[in-house]
Amino acid sequence: MATGLLPEYVMPSQSLPAFHGFGLGLRVPHYADFIATQQPVDFVEVISENFMVDGGRPLDIIDRVRERYRVALHGVSMNLGSVDEVDIDYLRRLRALARRVDPLWISDHVSWTGVDGFNSHDLLPLPYTEEALDTLAANVAIAQDVLGRALVLENPSTYLAFADSMMTEAAFLSALCERTGCYLLLDVNNIYVSATNHGLSPDDWLDGLPLERVRQVHLAGHSQGRDMLIDTHDAPVPDPVWQLYARFASRLGHVATMIERDDHIPPLGELLAELQRAREIATSATRRAA
C-alpha cells in the first residue's frame, strides 16, 4: 500500500499559475490541421501516453504542435488511487515528455486503473473514505515529487457508488487539494453523468469545492446506456451540459476551458464551433458576475 510511505506529504514548491484560454483536445484526425495552420485556440491538450514513446512520428508531431501552441498533458494511466504504489518508471517517462513540451500543466484523474500490476485502461471509481484519501494523497505526493510540479486532477464519471463512502465527491476533492497542494480539472460532462447516474443534483456539485484550485474545465458529450449515462466523449456537448457549464461559469471565473472529444471525431470546424459557444457562454457569465 502506498499509505504511509512518506513521513509527510511533500507539497509542491511552486504554485501553478492560472491560464485563461480556450482549447481543444488534439486528436489524430486533426494533427495535420493544427500543424499546417494556426488554429483559433489558446492551447491544446494531448493524451500524455500517446507521446511517452522513445521516438518516431509521435515526438515529431508533438514538437511541431508545440511550435504553434501551448500544450497541456493529460494522462489516463497514472493509477493514483490504487493501493499499488505509483509506477516510477511511468513518471520518469512523463517527466521526460514534460521537459520536452514544457506543458501548461500535467493532469490525470481521481481514480485508479488497476491493482497488482493489472491495468484495466479504464478510470475506476474510488470510495470516498479516509483510507482511499490517504492512499490517493500519498500517490499524488510521490507523483508531484518525481514530476517536480503540482498535478491537476480530474473528476471521473462514475457508474456505481460505494456503501462505505463517508463524504461527497466535492469534499473528497477538497481534502485532496488541501493535503497535497494539487489543483483540479473539472469535467462538467462527468459531473452531469455521475450526478444523473447517482440521482444527485449536479448544481450542488461545486458547493464546498475550493474553486480557486480549478485550473481547467472539460466539456464533452455522453450517451445513454442501457441503465445509465455513459461518458463516451463521442458526441457534441449536449444541452444539459452546456446549461450546467453556463451556471458554473460565473462561479469559476476565468479558467482554461476545452472541448474533449475522444471518439467519432468530427471535422475540426465542428469542434471549433463548439469552442466558440464555450467562449460566448464564459464571456457572458463573467460579464454577469462582474
Partner: peptide, 18 residues
C-alpha cells in the same frame, strides 16, 4: 459486492476498449 448495473458498464468498457 458491487452494484450489478454499474459493474456491467465497467466490464463492458474494459472488454470493448481492449
Amino acid at each position: 459486492d458491487f452494484d450489478t448495473r454499474g459493474m456491467r458498464v465497467y466490464a463492458n468498457n474494459y472488454r470493448g476498449q481492449l
